[in-house]
Amino acid sequence: MVIDSQLMSFFTAGSLIVIGIFAALFLDNLIKKIIGLAFLADGVNLFIITMGYKAGGIVYIFMPNMTISNFAQNASYPLPFALVLTSIVIGASTLAVMLGLVIVLNKRHGSLSASKILGDKGE
């Protein structure tokens, strides 16, 4: 197997996803959990961008001095990139909501520990 930058980029995305899930599962501090979830979203975005990449290709912007066939054969695939733009914005907004909830909860409980705040007493 040839180790190229695309494959390595997939591995980077995969490790970010694993780090994110690990943080959300095992770290007790809520801010750290949310940092982990932000890394998870980043990893998925990187994964999608890497899919659209074409080794040795060009940016998908049509310049006046290009021919159509040259552009069609060499440009990277732009659809994933359009999706990631949306996904980044969604990620930032849900992040803001979560942090807002954490601030309110810290004011109520005086703690940031998930096992203390989000324990079993919700009935």
């Binding site: 996803i17 899930i21 959300a24 809520l30 959990k33 949310i34 979830l37 998870l40 979203a41 990893g43 998925v44 994964f47 999608i48 899919m51 659809l79 994933p80 999706l83 996904s87 969604i90 990620g91 849900t94 909501v97 979560m98 909830l101 954490v102 309110v104 909860l105 109520r108 705040i117 989000l118 007493k121 919700g122």
Partner: peptide, 29 residues
Amino acid sequence: NNYETALKYTLLGNIAGPLLLLGIALLLG
């Protein structure tokens, strides 16, 4: 206790959401 439940729901949603996106990304790829 509604804030606690809301935070739990969002945290779980932020695991499920990106993973759903990953599934969509695989189909797209």
